[in-house]
């Protein structure tokens, strides 16, 4: 019983501070020592509604980057997860290196090449720049879903005469559903919140984090409103992924 209450309490502890964000977004005036805003208003939301282009820009890049990362990273995740390599450590390190370096550095390093190649400020350019970070995240999370158990299930299905496509749809995907969902969610979030590389490679193309950051220190209300806009798709993705991770297997 205590465990149930403790679990709920912990969950609330993590969720509550974000509720304050909602209040801040609609508070035209909220100064100490008041626990409740002195005046509510729509100034913040007005500003948020003008960020449509940036919202669409970030969304497009995030979706494409996540999809590409899953497609490219799936085989690598399988190979690593099923421990088919003789030197997994080295490969793993190589693949995970971009995770260890601040995205600001990779973005700045790529800028010059991208300008020369004409990729700066284009959708493919931004997707590639985000991919450097998203791909390793996706592979790292995805590989924990593969292993002996999944291979055994697939082997069983093969002996029963199931075709590769059927094996994929009926055995593999359901088995790794939890980790696939987590990987996709993480990949999406990483791309969605990217600031450093979006600034470096984006060449002024509208992206939501770039619109948001300048307000963070100067105008907390507008920042809070933009933050809520920022959170909306992320929360949707989170809900979808959490549901998917409660797989019966």
């Amino acid at each position: 019983m205590i465990e149930r209450h403790a679990g709920r309490a912990v969950a609330l502890l993590f969720a509550l501070p974000i509720a304050a964000l909602v209040v801040r977004a609609v508070a035209d005036q909220w100064r100490a020592p008041a626990l409740v805003p002195q005046r509510l208003g729509l100034r913040g939301l007005d500003a948020a509604l003008e960020a449509g282009a940036a919202f669409a820009g970030s969304l497009a890049v995030a979706l494409v980057a996540t999809g590409a990362a899953i497609a490219i990273g799936w085989p690598a995740a399988r190979v690593l997860g099923e421990r088919r390599l003789r030197r997994p450590g080295l490969v793993f390190l190589l693949l995970a290196m971009p995770l260890l370096v601040t995205p600001y550095a990779t973005g700045a390093g790529l800028t010059e090449w991208f300008i020369r190649l004409g990729l700066a400020g284009t959708l493919p350019g931004l997707v590639l720049a985000h991919l450097v970070l998203v791909l390793p995240y996706v592979v790292v999370v995805l590989l924990s879903g593969f292993g002996a158990r999944v291979s055994e299930l697939e082997e069983m299905a093969r002996t029963f005469g199931a075709s590769p496509l059927r094996r994929l749809a009926w055995v593999t995907l359901p088995s790794v559903r939890a980790t696939l969902a987590a990987a996709a969610l993480l990949g999406f979030l990483v791309s969605w919140s990217q600031y450093g590389s979006s600034l470096a490679v984006g060449a002024g193309r509208p992206m939501l984090p770039l619109v948001l950051l300048p307000f963070v220190r100067t105008d907390p209300q507008v920042a809070a409103a933009l933050a809520l806009l920022f959170l909306a798709p992320a929360l949707v993705a989170l809900a979808v992924a959490t549901r998917a991770s409660r797989s019966p297997l």
Binding site: E3, R4, A11, A15, A237, R246
Partner: peptide
């Protein structure tokens, strides 16, 4: 603590994940 709880509790606990560090 959380592994015996349902989707709602897990989702609440996971709420900080999509929030950017800034």
């Amino acid at each position: 603590l959380l592994r015996s709880h349902g989707t709602l509790v897990r989702a609440l606990a996971a709420l900080p994940v999509p929030v950017p560090h800034l």
